[in-house]
Design a protein around this nucleic acid. Structure first.
Lengths: 395, 395
DNA sequence: CCTTATTTGTTTGATCCTTGACTAATGGCG
DNA sequence: CGCCATTAGTCAAGGATCAAACAAATAAGG
């Protein structure tokens, strides 16, 4: 009775509800009606059909009514966790992380493998494919229930053409990531840049939950970012929106590989911080060491983190003036330094931003830690996968 | 047969069509169907009803089919120009402009009055109200057919609270602009910041027509801006998004009233340019003089414009890296200098932006000139006014 | 405790919209 | 020139959705 793709109106409504539940987890019928713009009665019918097909389950839990105070509480419904799983793959600059989460957002398994710094993408794909297969195996997931694989790629990503696009020479340039990994796995694959996915994850499940105006800043090997405006992730003309590593914070600063001076990336970012400490501490230091020592009171380590924070804060202040976000989320490895980084960062941001923007802005550490990008990849799959789940529903 | 406000589904569809026609001007039924997501048959019915009510007229003109090549051409329909008019009021920093345009986007009348620099808002409201009444009179407009009045206010504007909000002391701070003018005119009034409205106008009718990723930069008394991302104007948490006057382009530059050094506004902007020329040329110079003399080859004037362009370009380059727009539109009084400003601006922008962003970005002068903000105010009214027109339709 | 106000979920007839088929009008191709 | 492919506009039949009314479930207030 169902045509293959020419989604009927009913099919579209059904999908809108499923997608919403994938993103939001658990809601009442009335919540859903408000969110997708259908009437309560229509949503009731759709939910009944989905329950009939075992795609949705109704919990005994009751949800507080919308008005806050009085009113009959709603019945919580959620996607049947057994109805699908999504895989997130995060290519870091020397790791690959893989997680599997079900449609209820529960992380079923998380694995990780170390790679040499500046590994070749091909090497990464092979390893990631192995890791994904192992994870599927260990989790005991039925491959037919996998909705898709989301991939997080370091650096800017041109979503329209589907390739990494840093604008500078890089081994990742021009590689059709989704196709490469898809060929190795035989699964549908979606790809995007790490910063955009980190922002997506923090917005859906982390510190920026539900926030429609925010900036995500990733202090990691390089410095990247992304921002959400009007509730939608900005991509720009070629996927470069939000990339703030080359914001100029000091016109007389050190030379950057981009050809300018004083880019944010020349002050902040893991290699720069580590190199600053090398003369005094040697080259066996890890970031973890630095943070531990700083907390124990080591003045040099404190200063290194504080310097990075100040410069990042200057950039945050300028971004605040331009984008006027409600909140700024700091992610990436450096964010593990906590207040040692954030104190100076906040101070510098306040100094550099106008009261109009600065007073309205909170700055906080991301709440998802190193899993942020892999979770974002999962969120992308849960948010964008379409027919798969519905096609599996039978008559 | 019609309930007052609980818009039925049909009513909503009807409104969507009307609103689309207000924005787009003239389309075929098939175009409308694609744009609002209804079927051709439904749109046909709606148009028939609107024609019946004299709100829409069908032209003899035929529009080329969508596929480009073959196919039956569509019949052009547009809103009946006699069915409504919108008024735009632009408070400049020493002028008030008023225009009246009909729903077909035709400017029926444009008037302007000069004010002392830094006039009081109250004074401006009184004058503007008089000017609007005169304009309505001269145009012979029936007041009952006026959809609303849009107001452009200089500087940042907090749309959520409906008041100007520069974050710095200003006579406009905290004044409920729409209410003030509405009380004087007895008409529905909408207000927003000049830069946002300029961007809106350039997007709808000007150089950024239909562009979903662009930045608008207004080089005027101060320096302001706005940007569109994902096809939607960014407002930010408190209406400050896009305000780029305090982007720091030279950390060692002159002190700015905002408390930082080297803000864009300390290099570009009318007063700064004029003051730079004062020692050599005296204080009787006007911008118009400067531009004329520059075109005639005066080295000092050329240099003043070129310096402003370079600094603005640096900011454009940085904005390009962050926002990755398809195009950047330069508006405001200074943009009248044309290539004398734009040449150095483009050069500096190219130097400051990464290839990823810079190669994808065109920079051009706005095409609406000094009327941009008033037209944007009209666009806001045409885009956001709702019931008024439909309520007037009778049975 | 009982009433009132509020919100949820369900039912039903009416309405709006779409699907599919048909005709009209054009460009491209042999 | 005549045929085909393509798109626009219209019409009838069948569905999807909604509005209205109702019952159920709670909080707040007397």
């Amino acid at each position: 009775m169902r045509t293959p793709l020419p989604e009927s109106r009913a099919e579209r409504s059904r999908m809108a509800v499923v997608r919403l539940l994938r993103e939001q987890g658990t809601m009442s019928r009335a919540d859903i009606a408000r969110a997708v713009g259908l009437s309560r009665s229509t949503v009731s019918g759709i939910i009944a059909a989905l329950v009939e097909d075992d795609l949705v389950v109704e919990l005994e839990a009751r949800l507080a009514p919308a008005g806050g105070g009085a009113g009959r509480p709603g019945a919580a419904v959620m996607l049947n966790p057994a109805s699908g799983e999504a895989i997130g793959v995060d290519f870091g600059y020397r790791h690959v992380h893989v997680i599997i989460a079900n449609v209820a957002h529960a992380v079923r398994i998380a694995k990780s493998v170390r790679l040499p710094v500046d590994y070749e993408p091909g090497q990464g794909f092979d390893l990631a494919a192995d890791l994904v297969r192992t994870a599927i195996d260990e989790a005991g997931t039925d491959p037919s229930r996998i909705l898709g694989v989301g991939v997080s790629v370091p650096g800017p990503f041109d979503t329209r053409r589907g390739v990494p696009n840093s604008g500078m020479p890089s081994p990742w340039s021009g590689i059709p990531v989704a196709a490469e990994l898809g060929a190795r796995l035989g699964l549908p694959v979606l790809a995007d840049g790490d910063t955009k996915l980190g922002a997506l994850a923090e917005r859906r499940w982390g510190a920026a939950r539900g926030c429609d105006e925010f900036v995500y800043m990733k202090l990691h090997g390089g410095v990247g970012g992304a921002f959400v405006s009007n509730g939608r992730l900005a991509r720009g003309a070629t996927g470069g929106a939000g990339e703030i590593g080359h914001l100029i914070v000091d016109a007389n600063g050190p030379l950057c590989r981009c050809g300018n001076r004083g880019c944010l990336e020349t002050f902040v970012g893991l290699p720069v911080v580590m190199r600053a400490l090398e003369p005094a501490y040697g080259d066996r230091l890890t970031l973890r060491n630095v943070i531990t020592m700083a907390w124990q009171g080591d003045r040099g380590c404190i200063r290194a983190l504080s310097d990075a924070g100040s410069m990042a804060g200057r950039a945050v202040g300028m971004l605040g003036n331009i984008l006027n976000p409600e909140t700024v989320i700091i992610g990436g490895a450096l964010s593990a330094a906590g207040e040692l980084l954030m104190g100076p960062l906040r101070e510098a941001a306040a100094a550099a931003s106008l009261p109009l923007a600065g007073d309205a802005m909170t700055i906080q550490v991301g709440s998802l830690g190193p899993q942020a990008c892999a979770l974002g990849a999962v969120a992308m799959v849960l948010g964008e996968t379409d027919e798969k789940l519905l096609a599996a529903m039978g008559s």
